[in-house]
Design a binder for these strands. Sequence first.
RNA 1: CGGGGCGUAGCGCAGCCCGGUUAGCGCGCCUGCUUUGGGAGCAGGAGGUCCCCGGUUCGAAUCCGGGCGCCCCGACCA
Length: 502
Amino acid sequence: MSKKSKEKALTSQQEDFSAWYNEIVLRAELADHSPVRGCMVIRPYGYRLWELMRDELDRRFRETGHQNAYFPLLIPQSFLSREAQHIEGFAKEAAIVTHTRLRATDDGGLEPDPASKLEEPLIIRPTSETVIYEMFSKWVQSYRDLPILMNQWANVVRWEMRTRLFLRTAEFLWQEGHTAHATEAEAEEETRRMLGVYRSFMEEWMAMPVVTGPKSESEKFPGALRTYTTEALMRDDKALQAGTSHNLGQNFSRQFELTFQSEEGSEEYAWNTSWGVSTRLVGGLVMTHGDDRGLVLPPRLAPIQVVFVPIGRTDEQREMVLGRIRELTDRLSAGIRIHVDDRDNLTPGAKFYEWEMKGVPVRIEIGPKDLEKGQLVLVERVPAEEAERKEFLDQQEAIAGLEDRLERIQARLLEQARVRREESTTRGGVASVAELGRIVEERGGFVYTGWCGSDECEARVKEETRATLRVLPDEEFRSADAPTRCLCGEASETEVVWAKAY
RNA sequence: CGGGGCGUAGCGCAGCCCGGUUAGCGCGCCUGCUUUGGGAGCAGGAGGUCCCCGGUUCGAAUCCGGGCGCCCCGACCA
């Protein structure tokens, strides 16, 4: 019995992925557009998602010895200009504070008071390397003060031309880790360690598989020696840079006189790293798992893991059903995030659609018939097999098994995402730029090829195919028999991954 | 910053080309009754600076000029 939907249906992913994404973010109440162009309001449901990500990442940062701190939003303009590449990277998208007062205009409006003009403009941080290393230089004297392992949760502003909710907004929330070390080897180890933290978080919590490895010279962070990335593949077969970890070398310590006296007594520049993930991860989560019904959330990050929908014709029935639900949920471990949808102005069907759209992993229906039989109806957001969509289960057993079920769902989502990525990955036999272009155009996904290592070659491929060099994959991701030739015909130096990217 | 599209009720839209009563529809919202295992039904009701400013006209959502905003597609970026 196909029911005509009164709600406008979601645009399907196949019809227009971009429209699908925008609609789902708004309709699932993750975020909304702000009055200021390019900025977003993160709504409670979306913010809870971010908080759950944040809490787990924060736990992992502490576990690896890092401490949280907070550095100011405003940065002296002169700081940014100290590191040449760094300024080049951020100058084009800066928000600048020039005045400290407003005054009334004749026509009843407001304008910056010229008398309050700052001698030196302040930049709203696009990232905090400069202030942080300035401060580190005050705090560090000897090798005994190292390493410094610090992190901050903050907002940053980058005045983007073109924005999209979560994926690229003018202001976003993130974490930026900043460390200082006595040796290059230690800094490199730290850079790698945090890349690993990101990777395992993304896989274990977001159920989002990633390919890790260094970026090419042209794609690295401005001011870094080396940038490592975690690259994920979205359901529209475009790549998303989900997190980055940078070995900054001594670039910043030289500019900010971040020096220390070594064990041997010599004065040395410290070695720095920085690493970050942002609210962009929420966008990545949406585009990794979402389908034409809406969001699909992995249980570990779902604000609501299990939603109960009571069903009853009469007030009396509803009371009894709700009573039963209370009995059952009292017995649940406090670790499970549940919600009982007892609204009486919606039919059960309407609730089903709503919670599916919001990506809740498990729905449990209980009605009068179930009370008699001691059973309940359980539906997973993404069932293992379509055939068993509605499961009729013993109440006690179902409740007792919820925790395990959520873990199984978590694992399955990662597995499914992995399968999708592999199906969208092309390895071997891509021998020309034209062929790469064709694959990227027609099929999308990750394309592995050989690379001679030259910037010019990379730029040419980018120009001709619209694909970018996403990552020089770490060994475990490389092909069994790596290509021996670059697309240009020269000998391949390393295997690389190309894709159209967000 | 270039190209395209759109601004009318909370949301989605019609009306505009061809100016003419109190500006309309669906969803949502409020009240009541009946309902509830896949988007409930009926009845009643609330809700609008038609993006802004100016012009043309007896009369502007509609025509003209200027502005603003948003979305999409490109160049740059987490």
